[in-house]
Design a protein around this nucleic acid. Sequence first.
DNA 1: TCCGAAATATAGAACGATGCACGTAGAACA
DNA 2: TGTTCTACGTGCATCGTTCTATATTTCGGA
Lengths: 347, 347
Amino acid sequence: MKSSGGGKPNRITIRDVAADANVSVAAVSKVLREAYGVSPSMRSKVHSSMAKLGYRPHTAARGMRGQTFTLGLILPDFRNPFFADIIDGSHDALAGTQYQALIGINRTTPTVDEGLVNSMIDRQMDGLLIVGANDQAQLIEIAKRTPLVTIGNHHSSNQVYDTVNNDDDEAARLAVRHLVESGYRNITMLSLISDSTIIKERERGYRDEMNRLGLGRFARIVNASQTPQDVQKTARAILTAPDRPEAIFCWTDFIALQVIGVATELGRRIPDDIAIVGHDNTMYCDFAQNSLTSVDQSGQMLGLKAASLLIERIKGRETPEHYLVAPRLVVRNSSIRRTPARPAAAS
Amino acid sequence: MKSSGGGKPNRITIRDVAADANVSVAAVSKVLREAYGVSPSMRSKVHSSMAKLGYRPHTAARGMRGQTFTLGLILPDFRNPFFADIIDGSHDALAGTQYQALIGINRTTPTVDEGLVNSMIDRQMDGLLIVGANDQAQLIEIAKRTPLVTIGNHHSSNQVYDTVNNDDDEAARLAVRHLVESGYRNITMLSLISDSTIIKERERGYRDEMNRLGLGRFARIVNASQTPQDVQKTARAILTAPDRPEAIFCWTDFIALQVIGVATELGRRIPDDIAIVGHDNTMYCDFAQNSLTSVDQSGQMLGLKAASLLIERIKGRETPEHYLVAPRLVVRNSSIRRTPARPAAAS
DNA sequence: TCCGAAATATAGAACGATGCACGTAGAACA
DNA sequence: TGTTCTACGTGCATCGTTCTATATTTCGGA
């Protein structure tokens, strides 16, 4: 009575499940999709047949008509361990759902590799989560083609995709406030060369907070590229200038560690001669020698929130949401209160 | 005369291309697959129609019958920037092919998350490239279901999947030889707790080389877990023991940096009191302060080779290949020749 | 000029799910 | 008992490819 012919690969299909459970193919499909109009008895009957036969939905077939339950996660070249936290967070959001995230690496930040986006859309991914891109026109085009959420892109005025961000303005304020409270006043920010919105945002926070605390005359932002050579050259220039600062707020921990390296080479003591604050609170902060104060932007939370928003959007939400995650300062040795023996003012 | 109805999404299909080029659908498919029996004139006709219409193959539809040209790349939790090199390498191998690699993160090393593997197979990926897994029985099962290449798994005797590896035996030998040539003799290896084949292999290289150089009595392997607390506790124990070594060969740069941290805290000078060699030659080695000698295992080359082997296997190769990449020592300050003022022997 | 083989092109049936449009059973109510 | 409503089930066309079996063209040689 079995209707299925003797194909070689012998995959268990929805049809086999339907036959085993004595229901229609459409009913099984409904159960799979958790669609409306399925009685509890039918649901359990189908579920037990699926378990018995070891049925697994064929994603390609699903992609022909419906969803693939696959999300595309596009990350920049991720030598910064902070991105791993984003992945962890999005995995946490997806646990227990049918969705699976697959990751693609974008080697052309700050724009997004069109080939990668296309390839994900070609694969019928249900939505995209793009980290660290900043070309808003391009993102808007992408959002027309597929549900989109971004992380690390403060274009919160847009109407077509959701954004999730660290509150970079507040991050800089936290760092400045902490340094000032610890007795430092001449504070330089070592930032990046780029027109990304994250950078603008964080630089604004730094400048505003310096002004607010009456330290506007000390406010200075130095921009370097991310290459170690450039960072070290710039660090050396800052540290050997006649009007050198008492503290430096660095764009990332990695940069901060390099600054510490250069400072140590120059015989400076940290934090007495120069205090350092990093950003991202990566595991590298904890080395005894470098014990580095850093601003923690919870990558886990960013990833979690972004993945949740993406699923909402896939399920039909049209109105954009823009979410800010509050940063948190983790104080370590590189910025503790300077020794009272030395006067706090510059010059 | 146009046969296509007015569907809303209006996707360009192979049918539209066929109509535009005045050939059959099957002919277009053949061109796409670079299959046998296509004349050059047909090929160019079809290619120009595809370009004109902006045709993009629908991967889900392909997955129903043939290949998806998608490879699954499974990586362990990748806070080690070394994995980024593997990704770079496999991207390099895939550039110019139709294949696209999508990455999944395995949070259950040393075994492989079955859910992740299943999800990739469900998505009809053409083959899998698994990094850092060590459960051979499981890998053999996976290889029965899909073409498989592994990185970081020295089970080179198996007959069903390909392996690509750093020559970990040689890596340890390089480190030992260099340290001995630089005047160190009492050399400890700080390794991990795990029964992975990489670890066995590297420990074997260390032990054999120590014996070969007549330093067997100094050979000592200490195993710690990867957590910072454990690493630091172990480092402290090694560095404060009465028979403490003159040099330590560490499992990774990250661990080496922690050892440097602990040593500095204890007031030891590097390398005069204690020389350190790391492994992976990550960017963290270059900090002036930590300037760390390290063994470079070319992740780029591992990824490149592995991806090439995987494509060969997908194209039909059945005989397994096992490839070793030669490591390279990069000498920096943490292990330069010890000052002659001090006697070289221990005790 | 015709034949047969080789080379190239074609039609159309899969692949495995989805979801529309519809059918039906039974409850609720008169 | 008949009517209406609702919740639940079902049949089947459909998605865009691949690939087999078959048809057609080309071409060298007799």
